[in-house]
Simulated assay, not measured.
Amino acid sequence: MLSNDELIDKRLGTFIVEALLNVSTNGRMYRGRDVSRDRLAVLKVIEPEVEASVRPEEYRTHVQLQARSIAHVRHPRLVQVYQSAWVGDLFYMAMSYVEGPTLREVLNKKLATDRTLTPQEVMSWLIQLAPALDYMHQTGIFHRNIKPNNIILSRRGPVLSDYGLIIRATVATTSNPFGSVHYTAPEQSLAADKVVPQSDQYALAITVYECLTGRPPFTARRPMEVALKHLNQAPPPPSEFNPSLSAEVDAVLLRALSKEPQARYRTIGEFTSALQVALGLKQAR
């Protein structure tokens, strides 16, 4: 495994690596600077040992396909990819650097004082991300890793980050199908090529559920136990953990958390609109 400072001050393409930001299961995130344009970026670096899960040539091809897919994604609510390439045994992807707290950080501050996000606070970011996700899905791309940690609440509005697990709709993969187990749809936990637009809707609904109740619907000591609950157990109504939520809110979130993708809403926009009405923040048509 790379040491914390092995890449610091090294050059990847036109970027100088400045600092390690965090480590995930499929790579490391660094802050970098584009010396050709003097702009900050987030550099996602895939570590060599990740290749052990599949044959090296399949892994390299899979990573390249991901990068080519997301390079075409352009939306103000989605992190933009500037550059990507293999450098020896390392693969890096340079993305726009967005300043601001994550939704996870904001939620944790609320929970520290025994509060959750208000319906208005939830809708303030949800209604802005919904068009971005529907746009992605229309182009055949899925995010597969929606969670509070990957939603940045910048001054210019919310931005969805971390493209590490995006695949094209027409490309199957032998890679690990899990994103983050507490937010993973049942079909996604079974196989990566079973992912559909409603898989992202499921993860988004769990994120909303957690913001409104202070916890995800399924918890357990081991990740596999959580995954099995997604597959086999009905989620408890959110009003069980937040009695101020109405039966209408329960119905919307539980539909978005249906085991079968076709039972969920057709688009993220439809889900968002239904939730707005259920929360009393929009008139029903």
Rank of each mutant, 00 (worst) to 15 (best):
A247W: 09
I46A: 12
I166V: 15
A19Y: 09
L254N: 08
V42T: 13
L165Q: 13
P197K: 01
E49D: 14
M95S: 11
G280N: 08
Q120T: 13
Y30C: 03
S246K: 06
D134L: 05
V249N: 06
E210K: 02
I152Y: 02
I166K: 05
V81I: 14
Q233W: 00
V106H: 00
D38I: 00
D89H: 14
Q64W: 06
L281W: 11
M93T: 14
G179H: 06
R115E: 14
F15L: 02
I152T: 10
D162E: 11
T267V: 07
R222I: 10
P177L: 04
M224W: 14
V208Y: 03
Q83C: 08
Q120F: 04
A220I: 05
V35M: 11
R104C: 05
G214Y: 06
L257D: 01
A251C: 01
V208P: 00
K147F: 04
R33N: 11
M136P: 00
P217H: 02
L254M: 15
S24F: 04
S96L: 03
D134V: 08
S244G: 12
Y202R: 08
Y82Q: 04
E49M: 09
V45I: 15
I268Q: 09
L253M: 10
Y265E: 00
A67Y: 06
Q276M: 12
E225G: 13
H72L: 13
V42L: 07
Y135R: 10
F91A: 11
T184R: 01
Q80C: 01
R104E: 14
R285A: 13
S154M: 07
V79Q: 10
Q83M: 00
S154W: 06
L103E: 05
L190Q: 15
L204A: 04
P236V: 09
S180R: 07
S124Q: 11
V17F: 09
D162S: 10
S246E: 07
G269S: 13
A52W: 06
V42G: 05
S96G: 15
P217V: 02
Q83G: 05
P236D: 12
R115Y: 00
I16R: 15
S246C: 03
I8Q: 10
V23T: 15
H62F: 08
I151S: 03
L7W: 09
L254P: 07
T207F: 05
F271R: 02
K110T: 03
K194N: 14
Q188W: 03
E47N: 12
P261E: 08
T14Y: 01
G100C: 10
P243Y: 07
Q276E: 14
G13I: 10
H137W: 01
P197L: 01
Q198P: 00
